[in-house]
Every structure is written in C-alpha cells, then in structure tokens.
C-alpha cells in the first residue's frame, strides 16, 4: 500500500466500523458515538482527498496556494512557515474541504448534544 493511502484506508475503516456498530447495537449512547466515529471517518476521507502533494522531500513547494501563503507571510515579516521540519509538516490541505470539516465538527457537537438530551429523556421514562 502506498503511503498516500494510509489515511484514506483509515477513514474507510472508521466508516465501516461505525456502520457495523450502528447496524448491530441497540444502545443509544453507543449509536450516537458510532455517528461521531462515522463523521470522523468521512472527514478523514475528505481531508485526505484535499491533501496536496506529499511534502516528504524538503522544500518542494509546488502548490499555488502554499506559494501564495508563503508570499503573504513573508510580506507580513514573518519567517516562512515551512523551512524547518519540512520533511514532517506537509503543505496545507485544500481549504474548502477543511472549512466543510470544521463546519461539520461544530454541527456534529450540536447534534450530539440534542441526541443525548433525547436519549436521557427516553432513559428517564424507561426508568419510571
């Protein structure tokens, strides 16, 4: 398996795991948790899809976006972000999927809170 496929494989694995659990477990809290894991898996696929060329080789700044950001930070009088440790840090991922995933995280915590409130209400009725 090529290194590029590590995160997509993990994302697909998380999606499968969450779907399996959603289909086989009747416990409310666990299903809400599975929904969260499902969202993480989807986010991982989206971000991996938006990832630009691997920056494994130091200083290979190919993307327009990274170059543009570089110019801006330099204009702002700061050090260029990716001179040191470029072997480990990668070029920025596509900002549009990043924004989607960020939106998704916030929406998901709202959904989780609402579902937990519903589940606790149901649990309280069962307990009576």
């Amino acid at each position: 398996m090529t290194p590029d496929l590590i995160y997509p494989a993990a994302g697909a694995g998380l999606i499968g795991l969450a779907l399996w659990r959603l289909a086989t477990c009747g416990d409310t809290l666990r299903r809400i948790m599975a929904l969260n894991v499902l969202a993480v898996g989807i986010a991982m696929l989206m971000l991996a899809a938006g990832r630009e060329t691997l920056m494994l080789a130091a200083g290979r700044e190919t993307s327009t976006l990274a170059a543009g950001r570089d110019t801006l930070t330099r204009a702002a009088g700061q050090d260029t972000p990716q001179t040191a440790g470029a072997g480990f840090l990668q070029a920025a991922a596509d900002p549009v999927p990043q924004a989607f995933v960020l939106t998704g995280i916030v929406v998901l915590v709202a959904v989780t809170a609402a579902l937990m409130a519903l589940a606790e209400r149901l649990g309280a009725r069962d307990g009576d």
């Binding site: 991922a93 995933v101 995280i105 998901l108």
Partner: peptide, 20 residues
C-alpha cells in the same frame, strides 16, 4: 495535523475530544 489541516486539528481537539 499530518494531513495539513491545523485549523481542523484545533477544533477537533477542543470540540471532538473535549466537549463531546
């Protein structure tokens, strides 16, 4: 962070791991 999305990493650590 490894996928080049530090903005999302910050939100995930605070919301996904913490508040959820």
């Amino acid at each position: 962070l490894r996928l080049g999305a530090p903005d999302v990493a910050l939100a995930e650590a605070a919301i996904g791991a913490g508040l959820t």
